[in-house]
Design a protein around this nucleic acid. Structure first.
Lengths: 327, 327
DNA sequence: CTGTTAGCGCTTTCAT
DNA sequence: ATGAAAGCGCTAACAG
C-alpha cells in the first residue's frame, strides 16, 4: 500500500495521506516487520560479531567498538560468544547463515575454526577475521602485532635483569599463541639467552591455569624469575596460583602479560602489560566489513595490524642475583 | 515442497527421497532462511537480552547465564548494550519489536525507562525485568535484595568500629540505588548513628567518580572513615581517585561495595563486597521468560529475589579512633 | 508418501 | 499521488 511509502519516506505522498497513515499507525501500535522487509529486499542490515570470551575485558571493549561503528553506519549488531569452543562456533555459523545477516565479524577459537570459516565463505558472506589468523582462510583481518608485543614484553624483563623467563602460552592451535612464542624466542636469541622448553607451559586462554602448573615451574632446580603470560587471564590465573602457594609478585616472580585488565588494574595499577587497542579492533573491523558489503573495499584482502603499547607497572621488578645465574 | 519436510523431520518421507534431498542440499550449499520461516510461523525462537553495561563483570556473567539457559531451551539470544542510556534503549526497543523476537530480558537504565517498557508491553511481548524495578511496570522480575545487602555491608563497617560512613550511590532514578540507600540508612538507624546528607554522593553506575567528589568527602572537617559504594565500578572509581590523591585503602578509608569484581579481585582478593549471583540472574530470567512464552507460567507476575553473599576482604579495616568520635 | 494452494508482511514494478 | 499485482522463502492445510 501507500503505507510502505510513508514508512520509508519514499515516493510522492500528499501531506494529508501521510498524516492519516501516521495517526492510524500510532493508533493500532503498528510496528513494521523487519523480517518481511529483509525477505524481499534480500538484506537485513544486521551484522554479527562472534567473540571467544565475553568475560574478558579485551573482548568486551572490542564489542563496544564494534557496536559503536555498526550503529554509526546504520547496522544492527548481533553479539555472540563462543567460549573458545569450536562446537559453539559451528552452531553460531548455522544461525547467522540462516538469519541472513549482511556480514560477520569473527574472532575464531583457533586453527580448527577452518571448516566453520570455509562454510561461511562458501556462502559468500562478507567476513572479517579478528585478533587471530586461521591458516587456509583469506579474508580481511584486524590483528595485533603479537610477535612484536611479545618481543617487547620479553625484552622488558631482560632489561630488568631476568635471565630465566618462563612462557605461559595459549594453545598452539591459536595463531596469537604461536606468534607470541616466536616473539619471546626472538628476544631470548637477541640477548643470547637459551630457549628452555621446560620453561614453557600451555593452557587455555580462558583462565585455565592450575596450581599444579605453577608448582612445576617454581619447584624446578632453577626456577624462573619471571613469567610472560600470553594473555591477561592467563596472568591472573598464574598470579592467583602463586599467591595460593605463598609466593609474592613481583618479589618471587615477575609477571607480565598481553592485554589490559581494566577493572583489575584500577584498584592499584599492577600488571605490566602490552595493551592492545581493543575498542579499535571492533571499530575497525566493522568499518572493513561494511566497506566490503557496500563494495567500497579494494579488490585484495586487507590486513590491518593495530599497534600496541607497553605499560610498565608493578608486577615486574628487578631480578635478584642468585648463584644459578651466570652473568 | 518435500524439502521442508526433510528439513524439519516432519511427516512421512521415504528414505530414498530424504537422501536425495539431503545430497542436493549439500551440493548447492543450501541454508534454510529462518526469516521466511519465522514470517509464516509467527515465531522467531529468538530471545533478546539488554544489559546496561557490557563492560561490567556483573552483566557479562549475567549474559553468560542467559546464553546458557537460552541455548538449553532451544532459543537464540540477541545481546545488546544500552550504556545506561534511555535513548539507546529506545532504539533497541524498535529493533526487537520489528525483529519480532519471542521475548525480552531487560535490565532497565532506570525509572525513565518507563515509556520504553510500556511500548514493549503494549505489543504484548513477554518481558522479564532484570536487576532493577521500574515503578509503573508490572511484569516478571529477577532481582537481588539491594536493601538487605546494603544493610549487611553497612553493618559490617559499623562492626569494624566505623561511625562516619559515606555512601557513594548510583542515580536515585535507579531502584537499586534507592534501596541500597534505604538499607544503608536502616543500618545507621539500628545502631543509633545519625544520617548525614553531607556523607552522601551520587554518580553514574558506569564509573562516573571524579577526584573532585572524593576530595569533597575527604576534606570535610569530619571526613568519613569508611565508604559504601553502591556498585563495583563506583568503588573502583573511588579507589582510583583516592590513590591519585595519596590516600590508602583501607588505612585512610575503608571501602566496600555491591557486586563482585571478577578479574580485579583475583590478583589479590581485595574488595569487601556483597556478591550477587550474576549468572543466575541471567539464567533464571531466561527460564521465566520461556515459561511465559510457552504459557507455562502462573497467572500472576513472579518476582524472584536472589540471595547475595557478604565477602569480607582487605578493603575494609578497623576504624581508628580520633577525637571526633563520641563513642 | 508427495505435491498443490495459499498466505505470512513487506517491496518492487507497473498501472492509473 | 495512489493502487494492484507479483513474489521474497517458507510452512499449514489439504489433496492426491
Amino acid at each position: 500500500m501507500t503505507v510502505s511509502r510513508v514508512i520509508n519516506n519514499t515516493g510522492r505522498i500528499s501531506v494529508d495521506t501521510r498524516k492519516r497513515v501516521l495517526s492510524i499507525m500510532k493508533e493500532m501500535n503498528y510496528v513494521p516487520n523487519s523480517m518481511a522487509r529483509s525477505l524481499v529486499k534480500q538484506e537485513s542490515r544486521i551484522l554479527s560479531l562472534l567473540i571467544t570470551d565475553i568475560t574478558n575485558p579485551f573482548y568486551t571493549s572490542l564489542a563496544r567498538g564494534a557496536e559503536d561503528a555498526a550503529r554509526q553506519l546504520g547496522y544492527r549488531l548481533l553479539l555472540a560468544n563462543s567460549d573458545e569452543s569450536i562446537a559453539k562456533e559451528k552452531e553460531y555459523i548455522e544461525t547467522v547463515l540462516s538469519a541472513r545477516v549482511d556480514g560477520v565479524l569473527f574472532a575464531p577459537a583457533g586453527d580448527d575454526s577452518l571448516p566453520n570459516l570455509r562454510k561461511l565463505k562458501k556462502q559468500n558472506l562478507p567476513l572479517v577475521l579478528l585478533d587471530r589468523e586461521v591458516p587456509g582462510i583469506d579474508c580481511d583481518m584486524v590483528l595485533g602485532d603479537s610477535k612484536d608485543g611479545a618481543k617487547r614484553l620479553t625484552e622488558h624483563l631482560i632489561s630488568l635483569g631476568h635471565r630465566r623467563i618462563a612462557l605461559l602460552n595459549g594453545a598452539s592451535t591459536v595463531s596469537t599463541a604461536r606468534l607470541r612464542r616466536e616473539g619471546y624466542e626472538d628476544a631470548l636469541k637477541l640477548h643470547s639467552l637459551p630457549f628452555r622448553s621446560d620453561y614453557m607451559a600451555e593452557a587455555n586462554y580462558r583462565m585455565g591455569v592450575t596450581d599444579t602448573l605453577v608448582d612445576r615451574l617454581m619447584q624446578m632446580p632453577e626456577p624462573p624469575t619471571a613469567l610472560f603470560a600470553a594473555n591477561n587471564f592467563l596472568a591472573l590465573g598464574a598470579i592467583r596460583a602463586l599467591l595460593n602457594k605463598g609466593y609474592r609478585v613481583p618479589e618471587d616472580l615477575s609477571v607480565v602479560c598481553f592485554d589490559e585488565l581494566e577493572a583489575g588494574f584500577v584498584v592499584d595499577p599492577f600488571m605490566t602489560v602490552i595493551a592492545q587497542p581493543a575498542y579499535e579492533f571492533g571499530y575497525t573491523g566493522i568499518q572493513m566489513l561494511v566497506d566490503r558489503i557496500q563494495d567500497k573495499a579494494p579488490a585484495g584482502w586487507r590486513r590491518i595490524m593495530l599497534p600496541s603499547e607497553l605499560h610498565v607497572r608493578k608486577s615486574s621488578g628487578e631480578a635478584r642475583f642468585s648463584f644459578f645465574d651466570n652473568e
